[in-house]
Each structure stands twice: as structure tokens, then as C-alpha cells.
Design a binder for these strands. Structure first.
Lengths: 215, 215
DNA sequence: TAGATTGTTAATCGATTAACAATC
DNA sequence: TAGATTGTTAATCGATTAACAATC
């Protein structure tokens, strides 16, 4: 097993599929499966085995001819490629329902996200204990970021507050922003902004239901 | 303005962008903007104007040469294409944090989703009132679905319960399932399953942070 | 009218798939 | 060894972009 280290350009379409590989391999690891072929795994995932092998080839060689892949090795490799081992220090801003859902989300910590602080501007929420962390006043956010060396900020505020929170996060030195507010975030190029628009899935569902016969 | 009705095959890549058009146009409608050109809107969205016009052309003609698009007309057209006006009857199963987040999510009802019932299996949650709806025992789900003619089921249960809930939803006659559980759902071809895997966005963020220099 | 911008065609670019030599 | 399956190349397929005639 070799992980490629050189300067390879990974197509965007491949990057989008990496989390899916992670999810499916995690299940196989939990099931205790020892080996899997590209054909078996690809059928499980609903893609072609060609695509699976092609995708992996951007990162290195993880299998053995005539055998397939060792599940645990491939899983480890995907984790490393994704940077899951990194344990980024994180704050979450906006302790409403969505924020709480994320805080309590198993996969949050399982994926190696290290939640250090929760912030809100609502006096009736500030001071509350959620999953072992006390909700802090958002006014103290910027100082906290610099003091603690926070690397990721999660925005689960209403759309109207999103950009101003993002500005504070950026001023506070975070490298990445995970934005759930249905609001475009302006940020300098070196700050990575990942948007998750939950409502989009619903609209896709509507569309497919309406146009079922066409697809 | 003409909406195309014939049997056109819409590329998957175009369908994926429709919710984004909806989001951005909604903002422009709220701002009270009257007209917008493909160049202006595309710059806002970070795509090319070619792509915007090409995408719209799959559904009809919505603009005027030399003028651009009437914002409200284009917004209405996108809503109709997406099937937002339909008011699908919906139940949500799993009243944990994520379920509550969705129930309280403005865009849920704004997009025309008609939430009729909330179900859970936790005795301490059953009977609770959330946003005007009483949480029901999941044991009564199937009968309820048939009686009320429910069309969409939202699954916000743990992964372990997802498939069995999906089976009940399917037996109860829903046409679409919006699945948030990190679990593949098996369903017959005529049932549309839309998966929203929240954790995937986090992994994309990790990857981009780790490989920033390569992209 | 002159200027602007659409809708669409054709060219380019990128992503997926098929096929197979290499090899465990 | 014989069978199986990888990693990779080349061919196919699909998506994006550039360009422009049509026209408001």
C-alpha cells in the first residue's frame, strides 16, 4: 500500500466522492469484513468498479492484484487522505436547534472534530450547558478564537447574522468555515468555506417527484 | 416567458443546480430587484453566464433579449420547475435534535412542505408539543400514513432504525423519502429517496484544509 | 435606431467507462 | 500454476464554455 505524495491534481468530482467512500468503508470496518474487491464495494455504493479504482489511483495504490483491498487498510488510507486524524480545534456559533443537532451528532466527534466552544447572542441560552460545554456570549468570540488558536468555525446562526459572524471568525484566525446559514459568505481566498444548504435536498426531492416520468 | 412542457432530458448536473437558483433568486425577490441579466446573476452565484442561460434553456424561455430577466417571473418559473407549489403532505420520524432543527427550519414550510405529523419511539418524547404538533408513537405510523394520504417521509432517526422506518413509510404509500440517517436506504424504483448526509460537508472541509496548496 | 442581452449551436474541456497488461 | 483483480491507458460520454445570430 502506497500513498501518493506528489503534486497530483485531483478532479473535483473525485473529491466530492471521498466522504461517500469514508461512510461505506466505515460500515464494512464495523461489520468486521476483512477484504473487499472494487466490484463488491462499487456495487454497494452504486458506482462502477472502474470509477472506484480510478478514483483511488489519484491518491496511491491501496490494493493487491488478484485479492482486492484490505478493508481496514483502505479505510485508514481514506481517513488519512481526508485529513480526519488532524483534530481541528472548532467553535460553533448559533446554539439553536440545528446547532444543537450538530453538537449532539455522533459523527461530529467521530470524524475527529474537536469542539472547544459554543457561542450565541441569546441571553436565555448563554450559560446553558450543552454536551458538557457552556454556551458563551458571542461578544467574547474574537478574543477566544485568538487565545485558543481555533481553526474551524461552524455557523448555525440565522442568515442575517452569518456574514458578520464569518467576519469575526476570519479576524480571529480560523482556516475553515462550515456554513449552514442559507447565505453566501464572502471570505478571502485562503479561508476555506464549505457550505451545507440543508434545504437543497428537499428541493431535489420535490423536483424528482414532480418529474419522475422524465428521469 | 414560455415554460417547456415536452419530453426533454435534463442533465443531472443541471438538476443539482436548481436549488441554488432558487436560493439566489429568493434573495433578489426579497431585495425587491426588478430585473437581472444572466451576467449579473451568474456573477453573484459564481458560475458563468453561459451556464446559467444554458441551464434555463432546458426548461423554456424566461428572458427578453436586450433586457434580461424579470426577477419575480424567473423566481416563479424556478419554483414551478422545482414543484414547490405542490404542498406535499409530510411526516417526520425521529424527534431528536436534527428532527427538531428541521421542524423549526423556516425554509421547510417556506418551500411548501406541509408537515402533518411527527413520530418517535421514545416515551419521554411522545406527547410533547413541537411547533404546534404533538409527537405520536411510531407504532401508529403506518395506519396514519394510509389514513392521511401522506406523500413524503423525513427520516431523522439513528442509522440503526432508518431502514425499518423506511419500510413502514413505503408500505404506507409515500412517494418520496428524505433520509438524514447515515445509512443507505433500500427502496423500490418508484419511491424517490433523497439522502442528505450532513457529515459529508465536514469531510470536504477537512480535505480542502489539508490539501489547500494542491487545489 | 443603437445597444444590450437572450437562446442556441458548436467547440472545448473534464469525467466516466471499457479494456487489458501486470501481477498477486 | 490458474484464477482473480488491480492500476492504468485510451475511448466514450457528458458538461461547460465561447461565440453569435436573433431580437427586444
Amino acid at each position: 500500500m502506497t500513498i501518493r505524495t506528489g503534486p497530483v491534481v485531483v478532479p473535483a468530482a473525485v473529491i466530492k466522492r471521498l466522504p461517500m467512500y469514508y461512510r461505506y468503508l466505515q460500515v464494512l470496518v464495523e461489520e468486521g469484513l476483512e477484504r473487499v474487491s472494487s466490484r463488491e464495494l462499487s456495487q454497494l455504493m452504486g458506482i462502477t468498479s472502474s470509477q472506484l479504482r480510478q478514483d483511488l489511483s489519484y491518491f496511491g495504490e491501496f490494493g493487491q492484484q488478484g485479492y482486492g483491498y484490505k478493508v481496514s487498510e483502505l479505510y485508514q488510507a481514506i481517513c488519512e487522505i481526508l485529513g480526519i486524524e488532524k483534530q481541528y480545534k472548532t467553535v460553533l456559533v448559533g446554539a439553536g436547534n440545528l446547532g444543537r443537532a450538530l453538537i449532539n451528532y455522533q459523527g461530529f466527534s467521530r470524524r475527529g472534530l474537536n469542539l472547544k466552544g459554543i457561542f450565541d447572542n441569546n441571553p436565555s441560552v448563554i450559560g446553558e450547558n450543552i454536551n458538557g460545554l457552556t454556551v458563551c456570549n458571542v461578544e467574547g468570540l474574537k478574543d477566544y478564537l485568538l487565545k485558543e488558536g481555533i481553526q474551524i468555525g461552524v455557523i448555525t446562526t440565522p442568515a442575517s447574522a452569518a456574514q458578520s459572524i464569518a467576519d469575526i471568525l476570519i479576524a480571529g484566525g480560523v482556516a475553515g468555515i462550515w456554513n449552514f446559514a442559507p447565505q453566501h459568505i464572502n471570505a478571502p481566498e485562503n479561508i476555506i468555506v464549505e457550505n451545507t444548504h440543508i434545504g437543497d435536498g428537499l428541493l431535489s426531492l420535490f423536483f424528482k417527484m414532480k418529474h419522475q416520468e422524465r428521469l
